[in-house]
Structure formats: structure tokens, C-alpha cells
Design a protein around this nucleic acid. Structure first.
Length: 301
DNA sequence: GTTGAGCGTT
């Protein structure tokens, strides 16, 4: 399997001592991360390792279960569930064939063939034949799918439909709180779904993983993590933009905006950091220059 | 049409 530009393979190892088997169990997962991707589904968001770690710590309950992952993206939780013995179906939007294909590539990367893990296109809120043909599920999982309020109801419509067909199906989801104004609670009522939250305080203790390392400072809003950069030299690409700002902290995404028609740089771009602190550092520091040219930094509107 | 204020993409 070959990687595209900006893609990298990230390895996750889950290890725990099994009291029942009196031996250490471990599994290694490889996922394709593309922090530069325009499509959010190619980026490994912190909710994914959290859900994966939760599944790992409940792996004995996964054996033989039928699990569907919605909006799989990098598919870390889904692949982990498959490695733990579940029958897993990964899914991505049917409108994004490349993202669906990325799921197939990830299966290949983890030596899982199509009889072990199925990959299908599911568009949230649409009841296409792919959804109708699903076998009864034990569990639906989704990491970081509640990132845009305009799709909240579509996701829950799909979940509600699948739970209606098989009432013992459970839905397990992790998400980042991006705005205190957002809530799925009214929609849960509307779709007659009940929910409870699971504490992640003791998550990782068994595997000796500090979840803060996985999450970073992500409980903050997106706007504060992102800066608008202008007066860029015409010649620089997202790569150089990333390179310049990498000195201020870990970067999720750095993008120069190019004109769709001419392909020429518009001379501005966006940099999204993994923490608010990095943004503050950038804003405090003056005299930012790239290739000798002063550049302008502003918080995003 | 060879630039210099601006807030993109999915």
C-alpha cells in the first residue's frame, strides 16, 4: 500500500495484563493520518484514541459482536474492535468515495481482509440499501462525529433507525465539546433515545496510558486554536507555512489558500494548533517573517 | 492577468 503526499502511518500499541489468561495481551494498530487534509475524515482527532482505549479496556465484551462504526475516518476504534475479535463494519460518507477507499487501505495496512472487516458508504440520515442490508448490530460506535450541529440530527436519525430495528443495539460515542451552545439532548428526546455519559477518569489506568497525552488541551473551542495568516509570500505552500509555525507548538493543519481556477496562492492561509497555548504564543510574538517577508497574524473570525 | 486586502475546505 502506498502513501499519498502528507500522509503518514501512525502506530498504536495497546497492552494490558489479562488476569484471566495470566498473560500480557497486546495489539498493534496502524492508521493513516493526514494532518494536512482538507477533508476532516483523514485527520486523526483526539476522540478516536479515547474511544479505542475504551474499547480495548472492554475487549472481552467485544468478541463475536457485530459492530458498525459511523464516520470512521482514520478508523482507529473500528480496527481495534476488529483486532479484538468483533465483526466490524467501517463506514464513511457514501458521498466521499475517496474516504471510503481510505478505509479499505487502512484494513489492508492492518492485514484485515474484506471477510473480516466490511467497508461501506453510509450517508448520515439517508436510508440507502447499504443501511437497510446491515445485519442486526450489537454496537454502533462513532468518534468525533458531532462536530457540526447541522448534521447532529442526521446522525441520530441513522442511529435511531438502527436501534429501532434491533433494540438491544447500543451506541457509544466520543466527541470534543466545541461549543457550550451545542447539545444533542433535545434531538435525543425527539428520536426517543436515552443516553448516559461514561466517565473516562479511570480510562488508561489498566494500560498505563495517560489520556491527557491523547487528548492534549482539546476541551477548548476551535476558534481559539486557529489563526488567520496573511501577507504570505506568493510562493510558499502549506508545507512552508507548517514549517514556520511548528516552532510554536503541535500543528493539526496548516493550509495556504489557493485560487481554485488559477491555482495561484491567495497570499493567506490558516494554521490550526493542537492547543490554545500555541496560539497565544504566536499572537504574543512579533516580527513574524517567512522568507524575509513580514507576515500578518490574526485570530480567526 | 503577474497582485498585497482579505477569513477557506469538507
Amino acid at each position: 500500500m502506498s502513501l499519498l503526499a502528507n500522509e503518514c502511518v501512525r502506530e498504536f500499541t495497546y497492552k494490558s495484563f489479562s488476569v484471566e489468561k495470566k498473560e500480557e495481551e497486546s495489539v498493534k494498530i496502524k492508521i493513516i493520518d493526514n494532518p494536512e487534509a482538507v477533508a476532516y475524515c483523514s485527520i486523526l482527532w483526539p476522540s478516536a484514541p479515547i474511544l479505542a482505549l475504551y474499547l480495548w479496556e472492554h475487549r472481552s465484551e467485544l468478541i463475536g459482536k457485530y459492530i458498525l462504526e459511523l464516520g470512521s475516518g482514520t478508523a482507529l476504534p473500528g480496527i481495534l474492535a476488529a483486532k479484538c475479535g468483533a465483526h466490524v463494519t467501517l463506514s464513511e460518507s457514501a458521498l466521499l468515495p475517496r474516504s471510503v477507499n481510505n478505509l479499505k487501505r487502512t484494513c489492508e495496512l492492518n492485514d484485515l481482509n474484506s471477510s473480516q472487516v466490511a467497508v461501506i458508504g453510509i450517508t448520515w440520515g439517508l436510508f440507502t440499501s447499504n443501511v437497510l442490508q446491515l445485519k442486526p448490530l450489537d454496537l454502533i460506535i462513532a468518534s468525533d462525529c458531532f462536530y457540526d450541529p447541522s448534521v447532529f440530527e442526521d446522525i441520530l436519525a441513522t442511529v435511531s433507525f438502527l436501534i429501532d430495528r434491533n433494540p438491544h443495539t447500543e451506541f457509544l460515542t466520543t466527541y470534543q465539546e466545541r461549543s457550550s451552545d451545542w447539545s444533542i439532548e433535545p434531538l435525543l428526546h425527539k428520536w426517543q433515545l436515552a443516553c448516559s455519559s461514561i466517565s473516562i477518569d479511570s480510562l488508561g489506568v489498566e494500560s498505563d496510558i495517560d489520556i491527557n497525552d491523547l487528548v492534549g488541551n482539546h476541551s477548548i473551542h476551535f476558534g481559539l486554536q486557529k489563526i488567520f495568516v496573511s501577507n504570505l509570500p506568493w510562493t510558499i505552500s502549506s508545507r512552508e507555512l507548517r514549517q514556520y509555525f511548528s516552532g510554536f507548538g503541535n500543528i493539526y493543519q496548516a493550509r495556504v489558500v489557493f485560487d481554485r481556477d488559477t491555482g495561484l496562492s491567495k497570499g493567506f492561509g490558516f494554521v490550526t494548533f493542537q492547543s490554545e497555548e500555541s496560539v497565544n504564543k504566536v499572537l504574543k510574538s512579533t516580527n513574524h517573517t517567512i522568507e524575509g517577508q513580514p507576515i500578518v497574524i490574526q485570530p480567526t473570525k
